[in-house]
Design a protein around this nucleic acid. Structure first.
Lengths: 211, 211
DNA sequence: TATAATACTGAACAAATGTCCAGCCGTCCT
DNA sequence: AGGACGGCTGGACATTTGTTCAGTATTATA
């Protein structure tokens, strides 16, 4: 019987959430009091009581900083391995060595837990026309591609990111940048993954450019 | 100057880690004491001191349950609130209502824990030249922008994503799409955040079509 | 062998923190 | 009009909790 929080209660809940992610621990009653400018710790405490009543918050009585926002626990965070370079024998996943992981929640990625998901660091500018830049991290899912999907494919022993197209029942790959020709596979086309998400961290995020 | 922990210290560190993942919060000194059967809280406390000296643990003095294992921070996933729409009075964070959250690890985002970070859903195509598309999720940090940064700014009561430029010591905003004029602020320029990351989930990604 | 570091016991203090009681004011609903 | 509820002030109390001082025994370490 969890009901909706009021505006104020939402704010409190948000502050708890934020405090947890920023400082790694939940705030105390008096920290909440201070943040909202209450004159009494009871103001914060009663909000917590209300949130608890509405099942939006859990806590251990008598325990310091024992606040836990209900939804946050259930968030399933997937560790997506990053393969900087995909070698030929991709089928054997066990031999892969990820260069770290991206962590993203399944919700926002809409990932099925059964699906094989991985990420690749993009090299080159052959897909800038599709707004995929050098250095971008592309999250891929192992499945059959559809016409128009962006895929990681194996061409001549190298893996590249291209758009997957079908013409006259024959699939081929297209780069999204002037000067790159279409790639029509001589033998068979090995699709290693279909792009489902993109993650970019601009290199110039903190750096000024020439005026 | 971080050296190796002793066997016992390793056990304590392990217990702290386990307690955090199991209960969502760090143990107190006395909980550690109880777990190891110490007769004095000082036994646990001195272990924590040693671990701190070896840079394997961080804590806030005088704060309850403020233990953080050094390596674990990197795996920590931050909940970044998504503000679909940024109203005028942004300075008052308390009135914000996030439309859910993105979850990303601090490492890959290079987020400072102290920094105020949030995300905005991009609307419109004024930044396609900078490879930022309609529907993209842009992660922003609250800080002073540099020349060339992409920022969320408040213009005429509306928030837009633009490139921040400075000419003759006067800052202005530039869209990255043909046909959009530069925005030269009449009064003052309110910068709400500087882009530090981008997250895209293609709309046509999840459709499985049978051939 | 000296010296430091580890690994504790034992007691106690002070700050941090959760909690409770009493009451005020306004809004919404019946 | 009445009552339930949200939002808050003000004060106080009892734990919880971090911290410190003093001391013992064992194990490295130079």
């Amino acid at each position: 019987m969890s009901s909706r929080p009021t505006k104020r209660q939402e704010q409190v809940l948000d502050y708890v959430r934020r405090h947890r992610t920023q400082h790694g621990l939940a705030p105390t009653v008096r920290e909440i009091q201070k943040h909202f400018g209450f004159a009494s710790p009871n103001a914060a405490a009663s909000h917590l009581r209300a949130l608890q009543r509405k099942k939006l918050l859990y806590r251990h009585p008598g325990t310091a900083r024992a606040l836990r926002v209900t939804g946050d626990d259930r968030k399933e965070v997937a560790a997506i391995p990053i393969y900087g370079d995909i070698p030929a024998g991709f089928a054997d996943t066990r031999e892969q060595r990820p260069d770290g992981c991206v962590y993203a929640d399944l919700d926002s990625l809409d990932i099925r837990r059964t699906a094989r998901t991985f990420a690749v660091r993009v090299r080159g500018d052959s897909m800038t026309g599709a707004h995929i830049l050098d250095g971008d991290l592309v999250v891929l899912e192992l499945r059959e591609p559809n016409h128009g999907n962006i895929v990681a494919a194996l061409i001549d022993g190298e893996t590249t990111l291209k758009r997957y197209l079908v013409k006259n029942r024959r699939p081929f790959l297209r780069a999204e940048h002037p000067g790159y020709p279409d790639l029509i596979p001589a033998r068979e086309l090995v699709i290693q993954g279909v792009m489902i998400a993109l993650f970019r961290k601009p290199k110039d995020a903190g750096r000024p450019i020439e005026p």
